[in-house]
Design a protein around this nucleic acid. Sequence first.
DNA 1: TCTGCACCTTTACATCATGTCAGGGTCAGG
DNA 2: CCTGACCCTGACATGATGTAAAGGTGCAGA
Lengths: 128, 128
Amino acid sequence: MNIGAASRASGVSQRMIRHYEQIGLIPGAARRDSGYRDYSEADVHRLRFIANARDLGFAISEISTLLALWSDQRRASSEVRSLALAHAEELGRKARALEAMRQTLLTLAQQCHGNDRPDCPILQRLED
Amino acid sequence: MNIGAASRASGVSQRMIRHYEQIGLIPGAARRDSGYRDYSEADVHRLRFIANARDLGFAISEISTLLALWSDQRRASSEVRSLALAHAEELGRKARALEAMRQTLLTLAQQCHGNDRPDCPILQRLED
DNA sequence: TCTGCACCTTTACATCATGTCAGGGTCAGG
DNA sequence: CCTGACCCTGACATGATGTAAAGGTGCAGA
């Protein structure tokens, strides 16, 4: 399977497939005589795994660990679980930070009459 | 005031002060004969404004607009308000996305007994 | 006055994940 | 054999920020 087909089958862009290969997240693909990369079903399976992990917000370094655990038949599921929980906590931190910013902005916007006069508590707050 | 003092007074790193100057977010600083940048209290005030806006998650392009509105005495506060509300909505979108990822991970982790056996619903889910 | 240290200057490279473009080679059908 | 679709590598861009190198400046103390 050429890279285009592998990309369509996995949902990972050709650009990122080559990138993942370059940074060592996935092994170098087999090559045809022409130099074209050649992917197996197992390769596509791994790419889908990566795409799903990315969708859950895992960073490449975390995915690298997940891939190792995935292919380790003797792995302990507790390792995967604690990685997932740590990541969930990190996501929660980020979500709460964004939410706090949002609340601040909403409060300020509420205090801003939003007419065509120049005074605005939002700008005043930014000056402090 | 040299850049180091301006940095300490505003909370913006020297690196970012120079960067903001380079990308045109702030005007080029006055220079001494030595070539050293020289900052006024007004310059520091503007840098603090930028730092506060960054803390609220505004992107540089949005801050550029905010700075223009800030220095425009004839501005309408409604412009500032709608910019803030649009940004708040964007923050909400991102926060909800992170929260959805987090919930997915928590659900999966709950289904994972987390012992030393290899089967793990988290990894299974990533395979789909 | 010389010396040393703290500060300043510019330039460049790194991050992270991803897009896009350029300049070329390959393959398959008509 | 030509054409269009595909593939290759390499390079540049994003956004916000850090760090490092190589060199000039300014001031205080010996």
